[in-house]
Amino acid sequence: MSVARPSHLLLIAVFFAAGIFIATFADAAWLRHQRGSATEQNRALVTQLQLTDLCLFTEARYTRHLSQADLHSAFQDHPLGLEKFPTGSLVAPPAHLIAAHERLDRQAAIPD
């Protein structure tokens, strides 16, 4: 009677692992189909109410409406009012405020 060699067991384990790995992609496709209606409902509500942001962080006004905040709103509550909300360290300021601009200073003429 032949005894199962460790390499054979490993081969089975590799096939099993590969199967699980591939199964995550199949499961993802199935879940996407399942959860598609919730996404469409969200989209319809955004259009209907003219919403601008996701309701991810409700603790501070500048993280609740991330895209509507200005660059320094996190620090505007009072002088030396340093940012204290945990989500302030999670997300970046709105994209349009931190976009790189042309370096116009190099093109401008220096006054005499």
Partner: peptide, 28 residues
């Protein structure tokens, strides 16, 4: 995708009381 990123919830929630429950459609 099956526990709604349970371990991230306390980090994302911060000091907020209201936190949405949402199941993201997986996009890999």
């Amino acid at each position: 995708f099956h526990t709604s990123a349970m371990l991230f919830t306390p980090v994302l929630k911060g000091w907020a009381v209201l936190y949405p429950h949402f199941d993201l459609p997986p996009v890999i």
